[in-house]
Design a protein around this nucleic acid. Structure first.
Lengths: 335, 335
DNA sequence: CTGAAAGCGCTAACAC
DNA sequence: GTGTTAGCGCTTTCAG
């Protein structure tokens, strides 16, 4: 690593002169052209690159570094919403903070996140962690504060949605409309460890209201897989008077199927509610505008940021859990 | 700002002892429990928060900080792909680098990016800049290296796709199939300053082959706006023997329209090609799998990272332009 | 069990 | 025009 001092020695100049030149202040400081060239050439020669930490230290840059870990798989729009929420908090509160983004491979969080690498950040937000990743976190000790997004832990603070309540809400809505025969449409997805709570929240409430629930599980959480699964289990969907989709992709594939087949009439004979994370426009522009229980990703991002900043400000209190309310929006697939 | 030294004074201990305790090394260093508690309490009391830059400097952390500027509007999946590409480069080359993400409001880049704030990073990648943002960059001088994503500049290095060639490619494909009557379906979008080149590339080539092109411009780049626009200009679409969509959202809304109306039969009487940025699965699972000219966002992210690292390593050469090839994938909407 | 001292790389104030 | 000096906050070695 080349430094300003080395350039100074190499050119027989002083470090301050070199610094002035490299910072583009040679004009205002009346440095001679000859000296400027000498410095620039030496910098090039020696492959100088500034040490940003030193510069920041010297400049009293007391920024907080918040590192965000996010799995490198398919949940792209969520990441964007999440970061938007975090940045919202930064702007609202004028906190001097920067967001460092690290994508990691599911189950391999431990490779990206070691205690001593974490010490190089003010604090960390960990998102989309798998069960394996959580295990690693539980058994490892960090001096850097950590906040978990949508994963519960006694050890670390976390921001959650009420998974059980989401299922309950859908069941209540259906029960109010005297629905008796429900399909829960879900997909196999090792990552989403909270879908079971959403599912059981629905089933418990719906059966208490006298209804029967069937679960249909697509092999993958995609349009195509959803569509194929519906085709194979068509009679289940035809006989249901209400459908609760755990992922909006599945609901959209179902709407597609309905458009092609006229299997049932919605919402007269069947109501549909889906869990979703996209913006309203997405759901409104569908074949039939889709009723959605929305997970407020941006809000959660904002809340994660609040927590993490608080922790990095020396809040040594116990882990806290914060629950963010979901929002139900009725559109044309439900009454 | 509280520091280790202040805690040391407050507790009548030395800075080194305080440091040891705060780094969780009190056990291995045999610090007495009494001292540990004294330090922790003082830290809490004084609101101590570590200065990360100082810590990094001391630990010879010579990381590069690459800051990525991205407009806070709707291009979420692109951001994800882009960062994935950047991170790919980091992993491939084992560069010690971190990616700092800054979302900015379109046209207001100057607020987020001042020369002296940029000096706190090794280098910057600027994405999705508007014309106004570009003007600001051209007229401002920075000592920090900058790379532009998909925007041309003589002053700054940049990574581009061949916009003109994309249009040309689509026109060539249609011309080969003896198409004579094309619709270009696009949308008003101040951000996307390169669509005109894609459009003119198409028109030039198509007219040279004896074809006629009509441009239809939706007010917004969304499913709904696309659908409504098609409805209002249905005869144009009916009479065309080929359609070139500049955005995949528009193509998808058109496929929806076709499914509902059977306006034309695809690809027998009409072929459709769209520009797209999503993964193959998205296009394959549509009503009719969609032929796509794909913008390789990840590749471009990777290339931006390569450039920016090179620059931050003291490459003082002139601005370079790198062109990344697009990929055409034929599916069922074209022959 | 705790403290003194040195130094990471940088820049600003001041001196000449 | 250029150099000397000091110090940002932290951690590690070594001494006691």
């Amino acid at each position: 690593m080349s430094t300003i001092r080395k350039i100074a020695e190499y050119t027989n100049l002083s470090p301050s002169t070199v610094s002035i030149v490299l910072n583009g202040k040679s004009v205002s400081r009346n440095i001679s052209e000859k000296t400027v060239n000498k410095v620039l050439e030496a910098a090039k020669e020696l492959g100088y690159t500034p040490n940003i930490s030193a510069r920041r230290l010297r400049n009293n840059n007391t920024k907080k570094y918040i590192v965000v870990f996010w799995a490198n798989d398919f949940r792209a729009p969520l990441l964007f919403e999440f970061i938007k929420g975090m940045q919202q908090y930064i702007e609202d509160t004028q906190t001097d903070t920067e967001i460092v983004l690290k994508l990691f491979t599911p189950d391999l969080l431990y490779k990206a996140l070691q205690p001593d690498t974490l010490a190089m950040y003010s604090s960390a937000v960990i998102c989309t962690a798998s069960n394996k990743d959580l295990e690693y976190l539980e058994m490892t000790d960090f001096t850097t504060p950590i906040v978990l997004y949508n994963r519960f832990s006694k050890k670390y603070s976390n921001v959650l949605v009420q998974n059980h309540e989401i299922g309950k809400k859908a069941a209540e809505l259906f029960a109010e409309h005297n629905k008796k025969n429900a399909v829960i449409f879900t997909a196999q997805d090792g990552q989403y460890i909270y879908s079971e709570k959403r599912m059981s929240g629905f089933m418990k409430t719906f059966s208490e209201a006298g209804g029967i629930t069937t679960v249909i599980n697509a092999p993958q959480n995609s349009m195509r897989s959803g569509y194929d699964t519906i085709k194979q289990t068509e009679s289940m969907f035809r006989n249901a008077d209400c459908v609760f989709c755990l992922y909006d992709v599945l609901a959209i594939s179902y709407l597609d199927y309905l458009r092609n087949t006229n299997l049932v009439s919605v919402p007269e004979n069947q109501e549909i509610i889906s869990i979703g994370t996209n913006d309203n426009d997405t759901y409104e522009s569908l074949f039939i505008p889709l009723s959605i229980i929305k997970i407020p990703i941006s809000e959660m991002g904002k809340e994660c940021m609040r927590m993490v900043i608080e922790k990095s400000n020396g809040d040594y209190n116990e882990a806290e859990s914060k629950i963010i309310d979901f929002v139900y929006t009725s559109r044309l697939t439900s009454k």
